[in-house]
Design a protein around this nucleic acid. Structure first.
Lengths: 248, 248
DNA sequence: TTCACTAATTGGGCTACACCAATTTGGCTT
DNA sequence: AAGCCAAATTGGTGTAGCCCAATTAGTGAA
């Protein structure tokens, strides 16, 4: 049976509607302009208000629009916009208007060992594929990256050419799609050796980021440690007040 | 008017249900245990599945549960849990199991000036209330904080005792409730003077965080600059893959 | 003209029902 | 006993319609 009709495919109706709304926002509307009402959008697109609300909810949480009960939905100022999103280094750099690249990629299959095994929830003797890269933005070093993938999830990965987005490659070749990740960010200073690799002065500030990524079946599929130059990198995002309080 | 009833309610049905589910998670269930099905919960609590889903959606996005189509909803491992949330310093510290406090609070009303005026979207000549605090956790310095509130939003704030949570005070006295904030995080090193105030060695690493907070009517209500000791502070959160791609 | 009150508008939350898609389960076949 | 296939289970998405709450616009009285 064919997967999808021809027309405006993109998956769900709310996803299509979302795409259309983004068009509106980036097309004719200016910040603080009023968007059509939910009821109008529902009628106009022949969907329910709930469906409209789903699309708007997402845009709201992404910081692209804001809503006020009784008043309407409005376009946000660009400013920071975008909440924390899970993207690959490549996508991240492109979103910042920089050209992503890699230096000195090394790939090897090794035993996980105690720490990485613990992070990935596997035995220290299990095999993992270790990928070491110096990532560049506009051809300047941006970040030193160590990535570990359980080999049983991506057999033969060590033999492949790892170029560009690892996440794309894992999705294409092994049907491994990242769905969420736990990330931990520390501030640190670079010792002389690492500073040299990143082409900055000794003891420059840097971000040390560790990440455990999960696939769509909630299996840990990646452990990564990255060091970002602080002079070129920052975290910018929107956060929301959940509701009241439920610390229990 | 009394604030809260006895029983279990706290507003919407999904909020009540959410509270109950948190009870389940923290009560009897262990990580990876299966939660009741959505249909069961709906029947059991006399609500619709949609309402159940709303409560579960939130828990999912907070990283407390995960869902797999066709299989069920399961309790997450504690690990990091919790996504980035917008909390006050006081709440943040309590969530980390530390006792929040303040040293050397200074409050003054000044002209916004160019930079702060620009951040708050007001005239450089408009008045803002400047609050400077050294925040402590378990009585040790954790962060140096400069907060600026447009005076017209909180008239007379400069004359009040600012103790504990500023957000609570703004909510109670001026009906100003933070709904979202744009945050920017940089890594830096501390110069000797600041290092002394935080009681760490010179040139220690630190987070430099700037934040613009919005109230429920989307007015900028606060601009804050904070310096956190990196040896005691880190950012830990869960991030999600939005869906496909809509870079346009 | 001004101000208070009312009514219409608009987002927020919920019920009830229906169908699709991925996963699991259990029985049947080999 | 092993493996395959169909049915039941369970989350994912959508329709249709209801009432509430906050805001805004309009109406009418002082």
């Amino acid at each position: 049976m064919h997967q999808v009709e021809a027309s405006a495919r993109s998956g769900s109706k709310s996803a299509q509607l979302r795409a259309h709304l983004i068009g509106l926002i980036e097309g004719g509307l200016k910040p603080h302009d009023k968007m059509p009402t939910e009821r109008d959008l529902a009628e106009q697109f022949g969907v329910t208000r709930l469906t409209v609300r789903r699309a708007l909810d997402q845009l709201d949480h992404e910081g692209r629009v804001y809503r006020t009960q009784g008043a309407g939905t409005f376009v946000s100022e660009p400013r920071i916009a975008k909440s924390v999103e899970l993207t690959s280094f490549s996508d991240d750099m492109r979103a910042r208007g920089l050209k992503p690249g890699s230096l000195a990629t090394k790939v090897a299959e090794i035993a996980a060992g105690a720490e990485i095994g613990a992070q990935l929830g596997i035995s220290p003797r299990d095999r993992v594929t270790h990928i070491h890269r110096v990532r560049t933005a506009d051809n300047e070093p941006m970040c030193i990256e160590h990535t570990y993938i359980p080999s049983h999830l991506a057999p033969g990965l060590a033999g492949l050419e790892v170029e560009g987005s690892l996440y794309d490659l894992l999705a294409d070749r092994f049907h491994l799609r990242v769905s969420k990740a736990e990330q931990s960010i520390h501030a640190t200073v670079l010792d002389p050796d690492l500073a040299r690799q990143l082409d900055v002065a000794e003891f420059s500030p840097a971000f040390r980021v560790t990440r455990v990524a999960y696939d769509s079946r909630n299996r840990r599929m990646e452990y990564a440690e990255s060091l970002y130059r602080a002079d070129r990198y920052s975290y910018d995002f929107v956060i929301y007040r959940s509701s009241k309080d439920d610390r229990s």
